[in-house]
Nucleic acid binder design. Structure first.
Lengths: 183, 183
DNA sequence: TTGAAAAACGGAGGCTACCTCCGTATAGTA
DNA sequence: TACTATACGGAGGTAGCCTCCGTTTTTCAA
C-alpha cells in the first residue's frame, strides 16, 4: 500500500467515525469524503460499499479497545486497570448506538466477523480482569465475558441515558471488586 | 374518507406488505405504488414518510393476528385453537424479519405504539391459551405473554431457517400441552 | 538525480430514489 | 344533474450513490 493511500485510508476511517457518531450510520458518503478532505472516488476505491466503511470503523474501535487493555495492564495496578478498561469499554459500546443497524447488517452478512471481534474483546477483558482476580482485587466468581455481556447490551440500548451510564458503571465496579478492598 | 381513498389505502398497505416481504423494508416507494397500481402522489398523501407505511402494514398484521385468535376461539376446540393461533403467530413474526430495522425505527420514534400493539397481542394470546388452560388442555404454569416472548425472538432471529421453525413449533406445542392429553 | 511506470487521486456526471406540486378526474350531495 | 370537495397521478426538482477517466503523485531503476 502506497504511503498516500495509507494516509487517506486512515483519514477516511477517522472521518467516518466522527460523521457516523454525529449523523448516524446513514450519513452520506459525500459527507464522509468531505470531512476526510478527499474525493468520493477515493472513498469508494477504499470502501466499495457503505458496509465496508462501517466495518473498518468498527474493527478500528475494537483494536483501540484491545490496545487500551494492554496499556492498562502495562501501566496500572490491577484494580485501576479494570476501572480504566471498563470505562473505555462503555465509551466504545455507547458509540455503537449511532450505527447499530448498519453494524447488524454487517454481522448478518459476515457472521465470522462478529465472532472474531467478540473473541478479541473477550480476550482483552479476560487479560485485565483475570490479572485483577489473581491479585485478589476482583471477586473470583465472574468471567471477562460475563462483564461484556452485562455492559454491552446495557450500553447499546437506545433508552439508556448518559447519566444512567455514569451512575451504573461505578455501581457495577463496586459489585465487581473483592469485598473490603480499598482504593 | 372517500370510498376511492379507502380503496387505495387498502391497496397500498397490501402492496407494501408484499413488496417489503420480497425486497425488505428498504424497497422503493415507487415499487410499492406500482404494485398497488396507483401513482406515487397517492402513496405519499396517505403515507408521508416510509415509516408511516411500515407502521400501517404492521398494525394491519397485528389486527389480522387478533382476528385469527377470535376466530380460533369461536370455531375450534380449545387445543386446536392454540395450535392454529401459534402457527399464525409464527407466520406473523417471521414476516417481520424483512423489515425489522424499519420497525425498530418506528418503535424508537413512538414507544407507545410498541406497547399498545404488544398488549393487543398478549391479550389475544391469553384469550386462546387461557381458554385451553381452563379446559385442561394446556399446562397451567405458563402465561400467554411467556409464549410470545419465547416465539417472537426465535422467529425474528436472522439465523432461524424455515426448516427450524417448522421443527420447533411442534416441539414447543408438545411441551405446552397438558401431559397425557390426546389429539 | 531523473524519467517513466504504477498507483492513487478527485470530481464530473449518470443513475436512481425520494418527495412535491398542481392540473385533471371523480365521489358525494343537493 | 350540477357543483364542490376530495383524491388521483405522474412530471420534474433534489439529493445521494457510484463509476469512470484524465490528472497528479509516488516509487524505483538506471
Amino acid at each position: 500500500m502506497r504511503a498516500d493511500a495509507r494516509r487517506n485510508y486512515d483519514k477516511l476511517v477517522g472521518a467516518a467515525r466522527e460523521v457516523f457518531a454525529a449523523e448516524g450510520g446513514g450519513a452520506s458518503m459525500e459527507a464522509v469524503a468531505r470531512k476526510a478532505g478527499v474525493g468520493v472516488g477515493t472513498l469508494y476505491r477504499h470502501f466499495p460499499r457503505r458496509i465496508d466503511l462501517v466495518q473498518a470503523v468498527y474493527e478500528d474501535d475494537v483494536e483501540e479497545l484491545v490496545e487500551t487493555a494492554d496499556r492498562a495492564v502495562a501501566e496500572l495496578e490491577p484494580w485501576p486497570a479494570v476501572v480504566a478498561f471498563l470505562e473505555a469499554f462503555v465509551r466504545y459500546a455507547r458509540t455503537k448506538r449511532t450505527f447499530l443497524n448498519e453494524l447488524r447488517e454487517a454481522f448478518d452478512k459476515d457472521p465470522a466477523l462478529k465472532l472474531r471481534l467478540r473473541e478479541r474483546i473477550d480476550e482483552a477483558t479476560e487479560l485485565v480482569v483475570g490479572r485483577a482476580q489473581r491479585a485478589g482485587a476482583v471477586r473470583p466468581d465472574v468471567e471477562g465475558a460475563d462483564l461484556t455481556q452485562l455492559l454491552g447490551p446495557m450500553c447499546t440500548s437506545p433508552t439508556l441515558t448518559d447519566e444512567q451510564s455514569v451512575r451504573l458503571l461505578p455501581m457495577i465496579l463496586d459489585g465487581l471488586r473483592t469485598r473490603g478492598d480499598v482504593g
